[in-house]
Computed example of a mutant assay.
Amino acid sequence: MATRSRRPERRQEPLSRERIVEAAVELLDTVGERGLTFRALAQHLSTGPGAIYWHITGKDELLGAATEAVVAAAVAVEPSGRTADSPEDTVRAVALGLFDATEAHPWLAMQLAMQLSRTPWATVAPRIFESLGRQVRAMDVPEAHWFTATSALMHYILGAAGQNAANSASAARAGLTGGDVDRDAFLDTVSAAWEALDPEEYPFIRAVANQVRGHDDREQFLAGITLVLAGITAHHRPGH
Rank of each mutant, 00 (worst) to 15 (best):
residue 121 W to L: 13
residue 103 E to C: 08
residue 49 P to L: 12
residue 128 I to L: 05
residue 56 I to L: 08
residue 132 L to P: 05
residue 70 V to S: 07
residue 45 L to Y: 02
residue 36 L to M: 13
residue 151 S to Q: 12
residue 115 Q to C: 01
residue 103 E to M: 00
residue 38 F to R: 11
residue 116 L to V: 04
residue 139 M to R: 14
residue 104 A to C: 14
residue 33 E to Q: 15
residue 80 S to L: 09
residue 145 H to K: 08
residue 137 R to I: 00
residue 85 D to K: 13
residue 56 I to H: 05
residue 91 V to Q: 02
residue 67 T to C: 08
residue 45 L to G: 02
residue 62 L to Q: 01
residue 60 D to T: 15
residue 40 A to R: 01
residue 125 A to C: 14
residue 60 D to Y: 15
residue 45 L to A: 09
residue 49 P to Y: 06
residue 147 F to Q: 11
residue 36 L to S: 12
residue 140 D to Q: 12
residue 155 H to W: 09
residue 42 A to H: 07
residue 148 T to G: 08
residue 55 H to W: 04
residue 156 Y to T: 04
residue 91 V to K: 01
residue 34 R to W: 11
residue 35 G to I: 15
residue 136 V to C: 10
residue 81 G to N: 15
residue 145 H to M: 07
residue 106 P to R: 04
residue 104 A to E: 11
residue 136 V to W: 00
residue 95 A to R: 01
residue 32 G to N: 14
residue 55 H to P: 00
residue 101 A to K: 05
residue 146 W to T: 10
residue 126 P to T: 04
residue 97 G to D: 14
residue 52 I to E: 09
residue 48 G to K: 12
residue 66 A to Y: 07
residue 83 T to C: 10
residue 119 T to V: 11
residue 61 E to D: 15
residue 129 F to N: 12
residue 102 T to E: 06
residue 72 A to F: 02
residue 48 G to H: 12
residue 77 V to Y: 01
residue 112 L to M: 10
residue 151 S to V: 12
residue 69 A to C: 06
residue 83 T to A: 15
residue 35 G to E: 13
residue 61 E to W: 10
residue 93 A to E: 00
residue 142 P to K: 09
residue 108 L to V: 11
residue 64 G to A: 05
residue 125 A to V: 06
residue 95 A to L: 03
residue 113 A to W: 03
residue 133 G to T: 08
residue 121 W to G: 10
residue 152 A to L: 15
residue 107 W to H: 05
residue 152 A to G: 13
residue 115 Q to L: 07
residue 116 L to G: 00
residue 54 W to N: 06
residue 108 L to M: 14
residue 47 T to K: 02
residue 48 G to V: 12
residue 59 K to R: 14
residue 107 W to M: 04
residue 152 A to N: 07
residue 58 G to W: 06
residue 105 H to M: 10
residue 123 T to A: 11
residue 62 L to G: 01
residue 107 W to I: 02
residue 94 V to P: 00
residue 104 A to K: 14
residue 59 K to E: 03
residue 126 P to L: 09
residue 98 L to R: 01
residue 156 Y to L: 05
residue 73 A to R: 10
residue 147 F to W: 11
residue 72 A to I: 07
residue 44 H to G: 00
residue 117 S to L: 09
residue 146 W to E: 08
residue 79 P to I: 12
residue 91 V to E: 01
residue 48 G to E: 14
residue 81 G to S: 14
residue 67 T to V: 07
residue 152 A to P: 06
residue 152 A to Q: 09
residue 76 A to G: 12
residue 128 I to C: 00
residue 43 Q to N: 14
residue 49 P to Q: 12
residue 123 T to H: 02
residue 54 W to E: 09
residue 53 Y to P: 02
residue 114 M to S: 04
residue 104 A to I: 10
residue 56 I to E: 03
residue 112 L to I: 11
residue 49 P to K: 13
residue 147 F to H: 11
residue 87 P to R: 05
residue 117 S to K: 10
residue 67 T to N: 00
residue 154 M to Y: 00
residue 109 A to S: 10
residue 66 A to M: 08
residue 39 R to P: 08
residue 42 A to D: 04
residue 123 T to C: 10
residue 146 W to R: 02
residue 144 A to E: 15
residue 74 A to I: 04
residue 128 I to T: 05
residue 78 E to G: 08
residue 127 R to P: 09
